[in-house]
Design a protein around this nucleic acid. Structure first.
Lengths: 184, 184
DNA sequence: CAATCATTGTACCGATCGGTACAATGATTG
DNA sequence: CAATCATTGTACCGATCGGTACAATGATTG
């Protein structure tokens, strides 16, 4: 028997595995188990092996954030885009049950492998958020944008460390209020 | 030739290795290289292997935070203790060049192995900080304490991701100002 | 229908993994 | 000085690592 897959369907599965196990903790045998794809298929779609898989995942994540978060922040109504960001981020990270793969990669030496993609992700997020804040009339837009993105990353760490979903959503609400106060 | 070591001298070396490579990324051969200790010594001091080494590191970290951060926050003058916390944290994390091992462990599935120690670390940090904030007259002490600890963790992620030391120190200063505004 | 070619499963590779066994070493103790 | 015992270096273990080779499969194309 032979099941045929498409590369695009595999990337989200890989993302979830890397998220749970980290780059070093993700072995090809685990990938085989959880995706149902043999090594033949895996290396057919990703000739560069594990590193190419991780790069594909990072590109996929970047594309999602670009269309769902960054672009609205840059182009749409500033207040609405910022408000939408909190909602979308809460959904995307499943109220803190899901972590940010980019943030996790940044913490250990897998950062060296993907430093360009990792730096880009945060630079663009902060930049887009600063843009919206500036348009909304915030005077210290850069500092507040950094604080917002850092706050989200920190809330993810706390939520995972405490096994507490509520703390993530609660942290986002606190940040949202602070942003509202700074843009009126 | 034979060099004799003590267990207490090894733990900080192990801490630095785990910090850089993560739990899964830290192999015994890397430990051997960087500590200069052979497997014989390593398993003599830590019969439980890698897991016992990580536990020893976590206990060491906990002890340092207890005496340098938590206890002052609980017992000393609230304003002074909070102000000292920002300084000590900035030093300890080397302005963001060093990461928080506990936070990093929380993000992937090494959390399962050490969940008790990881949860404890953050519970006690937040608790001690809340205690100081309450004594200083802050009305929303719990929320602000969570925001402070999360802010530090997030700032570490950002500093590493951007390879920017300044952002960490700057984030701490922003948090410090917010705390001062809330306690007067 | 025949030929092509993307996709797959399996067998296999050397290197490294975490861990064990144990004799040699040498400081400490009586 | 002799005996003890913590500490060490080395050889070795099976399991798993990431990766390669390649024949078999089967959908797509002409």
């Amino acid at each position: 028997m032979k099941t045929v897959h498409e590369r695009a369907d595999i990337v989200p599965l890989l993302a979830e595995i890397f998220r749970e196990l980290g780059y070093e903790g993700t072995s090809l045998s685990r990938i085989t188990q959880r995706t149902g794809l043999g090594k033949g298929s895996l290396y057919h779609f990703f000739p560069g092996g594990k590193e190419e898989m991780a790069n594909a995942v990072l590109a996929d994540i970047d594309a999602w954030f670009e269309q769902a978060i960054y672009r609205p922040l840059r182009q749409d109504d500033a207040h609405q885009a910022i408000a939408a960001m909190w909602v979308n981020v809460n959904d995307y990270f499943r109220s803190g049950r899901r972590i940010c793969l980019v943030g996790a990669f940044a913490l250990d030496d897998t950062r060296e492998r993907f430093s360009a993609a990792i730096g880009d992700y945060f630079i663009r997020w902060i930049g887009a958020l600063r843009s919206a804040l500036t348009r909304a009339g915030c005077s210290e837009a850069q500092a507040l944008a950094e604080e917002g993105v850092a706050g989200i990353q920190g809330a993810l760490v706390l939520a995972r460390a405490l096994g507490d979903e509520l703390i993530f959503t609660r942290s986002l609400e606190t940040l949202a209020k602070r942003f509202e106060a700074a843009t009126r």
